[in-house]
């Protein structure tokens, strides 16, 4: 654990010295908090919708059930903005992992590192945790701030909706599982390319299903409810276990040294 911790701290002091990484890690959470707050303040209502709202957004029907129209609009937008936070568990670790792996390759520091008595599992765990911890922390903290802000900005009935187990499940379970998925994929891709931006962009493709889900819900194609989130959690968990297993099996010193070039 001591060596894993050494690697984590090393990654942080290196990677956060990179302005690009620091900016992207800090910027996205701020944006996701600012967006709903600013829209609400600017319009006086979180979803400045009118009476035509329900015709435009078919999903609102299922979502609102028997809520009155104004509250329904609020719930609809809380749902949309809330799910945007699911982008953070993917976007943040991908950036960190891409720069930390590719950085190690460009400085050619892997060889002396692998010559030390660190196990490859410790090394991978250190690298992965260095990306996972800030991502989860940023997601939880920013979502917390979002919840607090919404407490003051939306009606009480709509706010109750944010306390639904669905969100707990999404943020506290699916979020970390997605982070692990993103990190594993980012490490695998970064070890095969020489430009961190390429690694970042390829790995970011994991965001696509999330964005599709959010879009799908807003056009009424699917409903993100508890069952759906639970199903996603299960699927991501299975993929995670498989990828981590394959990853640890595949990474031995020689492959890291000769392939991470």
């Amino acid at each position: 654990m001591y060596k894993v911790q050494t690697i984590i701290l090393k990654e942080w002091s290196e990677v956060f010295k990179n302005r690009l990484v620091f900016f992207s890690v800090a910027f996205l959470p701020l944006l996701f908090i600012a967006l709903p707050v600013i829209t609400t303040l600017a319009t006086g209502d979180i979803g400045a919708g009118g009476p035509e709202f329900e015709e435009e957004f078919p999903a609102a029907d299922v979502l609102c059930q028997n809520l009155e129209a104004a509250v329904c609009v609020e719930v609809y937008f809380l749902n949309l903005y809330g799910f945007m936070f699911m982008i953070l568990p993917v976007a943040i670790p991908v950036t960190i992992a891409a720069y930390s792996i590719v950085g190690e390759k460009t400085t050619r520091s892997l060889e002396p590192l692998l010559a030390t008595p660190i196990t490859t599992t410790e090394l991978l765990a250190g690298k992965a945790l260095a990306a996972i911890i800030p991502a989860i922390a940023a997601t939880w903290i920013s979502f917390g701030i979002f919840v607090i802000a919404m407490y003051f900005l939306v009606s009480n009935t709509a706010f109750q909706y944010l306390l639904d187990p669905l969100w707990i499940l999404a943020i506290f379970v699916v979020g970390p599982l997605l982070t692990l998925l993103a990190v594993t994929i980012a490490i695998m891709i970064s070890s095969r390319v020489s430009d961190p931006r390429v690694a970042e962009q390829i790995s970011m493709l994991i965001i696509l299903p999330i964005v599709l889900g959010v879009v799908g819900q807003s056009v009424g194609l699917l409903l993100i409810d508890r069952q759906f989130v639970l199903l996603v959690a299960l699927v991501v968990l299975i993929i995670d276990v498989a990828l981590v297993y394959v990853g640890i099996q595949a990474f031995e010193r020689e492959t890291i040294l000769t392939r991470w070039k």
Binding site: Y2, K10, K17, N18, R108, T116, P117
Partner: peptide
């Protein structure tokens, strides 16, 4: 190749390795 962590101080570079060793 020296393979040092170029953004980190000389002291920090050695501390990291001392811990790993």
């Amino acid at each position: 190749a020296p393979g040092l962590y170029e953004r980190l101080s000389a002291e920090r570079n050695l501390q990291i390795y001392a811990r790993l060793y």
